[in-house]
């Protein structure tokens, strides 16, 4: 793939750390998370089949407006997502395009947990 087919994405993980990776245009954000071995606990449980909400991501307002239309089925799953916001989408439904280059997406925290400092194996790279 040529360099112009690469899209830079900054993920902000649940600990607030920024992880910058490059994905291929046409890949979904879930694909990127898997390809780059990004360590977001439980992300993409149904493997991109619109049967769960674990690949929920929060976008910047301007970027959110650029994203493609949202289907009822995606909305249905988002209804069940933890920490739903007005700029939430499912990562499996968002495909990378050049216009999204440099965007920052946030992995929402799960609400039920009380963060504890013993996640000794958590990846920080």
């Amino acid at each position: 793939l040529r360099a112009e087919d690469k899209v830079t994405v900054h993920f902000v993980n649940r600990d607030g750390e920024k992880i910058t990776v490059q994905g291929n245009t046409g890949d979904s954000l879930l694909d990127v998370v898997i390809d780059k071995n990004l360590d977001f606990d439980g992300f993409g449980a149904c493997e991109g089949t619109l049967a769960c909400s674990t690949c929920h991501l929060i976008f910047e307002k301007d970027v959110y407006k650029q994203l493609g239309p949202i289907t009822d089925e995606e909305m249905d799953m988002l209804d069940l997502a933890y920490g739903l916001t007005d700029t939430s989408r499912l990562g499996c439904q968002i495909c990378l395009s050049k216009s999204l280059d440099g965007m920052t997406v946030k992995v929402p925290e799960s609400v039920s947990d009380v963060r504890q400092s013993v996640d000794v194996g958590t990846t920080t790279s």
Binding site: D41, G42, A45, S53, L80, S110, V111, S112, D113, V114
Partner: peptide, 10 residues
């Protein structure tokens, strides 16, 4: 299932 996932992680 996602509810059980979070709960189990807790």
């Amino acid at each position: 299932i996602a509810t059980t996932m979070n709960d189990s992680f807790d």
